[in-house]
């Protein structure tokens, strides 16, 4: 595979404690990025980018128990993209049940906001990155219920905000890693 990155390829860490990390990893590898599965605290040390996949946030909290691991994730300075569960962990405030996230983006997010799995669905929404409709897959998905001043919406389903950006942090309530269009991953790697 030709190297599409001008200087050195980024080293993307994908949180691989639990969830659909393998879907992110195969997209990133296909785009020519170097990837590391992040399971332990020291796996974070020299990565340039971090992806937080879909999965169960309560599981991640229980497993990332070592001293300092949780804070190290929360304070990661480089670009971070979170999908579904990722968007929950990145938020400042979490509802249903109430808890505190990493505060990477000043948003409030409600877990399982559409209901249980029988209410999961896929639909086409609008994204800031393209004029084409984008397939959004919602699996027991959360809803963004408040966005802070520095936070910019970048994805919508109807009137509802389904994706936001703030600085180098992107949070999406759906699963671009399960769609055939890799535009978010390309953007995240600086390829577009």
């Amino acid at each position: 595979m030709e190297n599409r990155f001008s200087k050195s390829a980024p080293l993307v860490g994908v949180l691989a404690i639990q969830g659909d990390y393998s879907a992110h990893i195969s997209i990133l590898r296909g785009l020519g990025a170097k990837v590391r599965e992040v399971r332990k605290s020291e796996d974070i040390d020299d990565i340039t980018h971090l992806i937080i996949p879909g999965g169960e946030s309560t599981t991640i909290r229980k497993v990332a128990y070592e001293d300092g691991y949780w804070d190290k994730l929360a304070q990661f300075p480089g670009p971070v993209m979170g999908t579904c569960m990722g968007s929950i962990l990145m938020a400042t405030d979490i509802e249903n049940p109430k808890s505190i996230g990493w505060g990477m983006l000043d948003i409030t997010i409600k877990r399982n906001a559409y209901g249980r799995q029988v209410h999961s669905f896929t639909d086409y929404g609008k994204i800031a990155l393209s004029d084409e409709p984008f397939e959004m897959i919602f699996i027991r998905a959360p809803k963004i219920t408040r966005i802070g001043e520095d936070v910019k919406p970048i994805a919508w389903l109807g009137n509802e905000i389904t994706g936001v950006i703030s600085g180098n942090k992107i949070a999406l309530t759906f699963h671009p890693e399960l769609s055939a269009d890799y535009i978010f991953h390309k953007h995240f790697l600086g390829l577009e």
Binding site: I17, G19, G55, I139, R140
Partner: peptide, 10 residues
């Protein structure tokens, strides 16, 4: 299948 994907590694 999406929900099955979310349960991986657990």
């Amino acid at each position: 299948v999406g929900l099955a994907e979310m349960l991986k590694g657990g």
